[in-house]
Computed example of a mutant assay.
Amino acid sequence: MNVPVASETYAAQIRRLAELTARVAAQRAEAHAWYAQQCAAAERAVTGAAEQVRRAESEAAEARDLVERVDAETAHLWEELRTRVRSGGRRLGDPPGPAREATGDPVSRLRGVRDLLDRIRQRGELPGSANPLLVCCGIGGSLVAYALGMGARALGHGSSGDLAVGMPVLALVSTLLGPLVGLAPARLLADRRHAVLAPRAITVVVAAGLAATVLLLTLAPR
C-alpha cells in the first residue's frame, strides 16, 4: 500500500530536481562552450599552419629563384673572368661550387665582384716602360713604308706611260704615311697589355716614325 509523501518532502525533492536540472544545463552549456572554444582554436591553428605553409612555400620559391639568379650571375661573371685570364695567356677551369659555411647576402657579394670586373675592364694607358717598344713600332712602320715606296719607285723607273708617272707619286705618299704605319702594331701592343693607345703613346709612335722617315729621306741616294 502506497504511503502518501508529506508536502514538505515533495517540495524539497522538486527543488532538488530543479537544482540538478539547472546544474546539468549549466554543465552542458559549459561543455558546449568549451567544445566551441576548442573548435575555434583548432580552426585558428589550422589557418595559422596553412598560412605558415603558404609562407614557407613562397620563401622556398623565392630561395629557388635567388639560387638560379645567383648561379646564372656567377656563371656569367666567371665567364668574363675566364675571358680576361685567357687573354693574359692563362686558363681558368670551371667555377667553384657554393661554400657550405658561406654567410651574407650573395647579391651584394656578386655586386662587389661585378664592380671589381668593371674596374678591371677599364683600360689604362701604356706605362712609360713601353716607350721603347712604341719607338720600335714607329721606326718599323717607317721602314716598311719606305721599303714599299722604294719598290714602287723602282717599278716606276722600269715602266713607261702612266705607270711611270704614278708609281713615284705612290712611293712618295707611302713614304710620307710611314710615321702613321707604326700605329697598327702599337695598337696591337696596347690590346695585348689591356691598355688604350693614348695620345701620349700615339705621339711617341708618330714622332719616332717621323724621325726615321726624315733620316731615311736624308740618307737616300739622289
Rank of each mutant, 00 (worst) to 15 (best):
R82A: 10
T103K: 02
G112C: 07
L189F: 14
T103G: 00
G104I: 07
L117Y: 13
R114Y: 00
V107D: 11
H194P: 00
V181K: 09
L163H: 04
R187K: 15
G161F: 13
Y146P: 06
R121D: 09
G149D: 14
D65T: 05
C136Y: 09
E62N: 06
D118H: 07
I139M: 09
G104D: 04
D65I: 04
V181N: 11
A147M: 05
A99Y: 11
E73T: 10
L133S: 11
A171T: 13
A63Q: 00
G182C: 12
H157D: 08
R153S: 14
D162Y: 12
R69Q: 14
S58W: 10
S87H: 05
D162W: 15
L126K: 02
V144W: 13
A130W: 03
L92N: 11
E68L: 15
V135P: 08
G140W: 03
N131M: 10
G104K: 03
H157G: 13
T74C: 15
L81V: 03
A198S: 13
I202E: 08
V70R: 15
G141T: 09
E59V: 00
V181T: 12
T74R: 15
T103Y: 01
L155A: 12
R90F: 10
G97I: 08
R86Y: 02
V113Q: 04
V70Q: 05
R69G: 02
L143R: 13
I202R: 12
V135E: 05
A184L: 15
R109N: 06
G124E: 13
A60N: 11
A195D: 03
R114H: 01
A63K: 00
P168R: 11
A63C: 01
V196H: 06
G88A: 09
R200S: 14
A171G: 15
L133P: 10
H157N: 12
G182D: 09
R91K: 01
R69T: 06
E73D: 15
L126M: 07
L176M: 00
G89P: 01
R187Y: 13
L172M: 01
C136E: 07
R153M: 07
G149E: 10
A190D: 07
V85K: 06
G112Q: 09
A102N: 01
L126Y: 12
A164K: 09
A72P: 01
S87W: 03
R84V: 12
R187S: 12
A99D: 15
V113P: 02
M167K: 08
R84E: 10
M150K: 10
E80H: 06
L170P: 03
E80D: 13
T74V: 07
G93N: 00
G138V: 13
E125I: 08
R90A: 07
G104S: 03
S159T: 07
G156V: 05
A130M: 03
W78G: 15
L180Y: 06
L163F: 14
D162S: 12
V135D: 05
R91P: 02
G166S: 11
S58I: 03
P168M: 06
G161S: 12
V70P: 05
I120V: 02
I202G: 09
A164Y: 10
V181E: 03
A60W: 03
L92I: 05
G88T: 09
L110V: 00
G151L: 08
E59T: 01
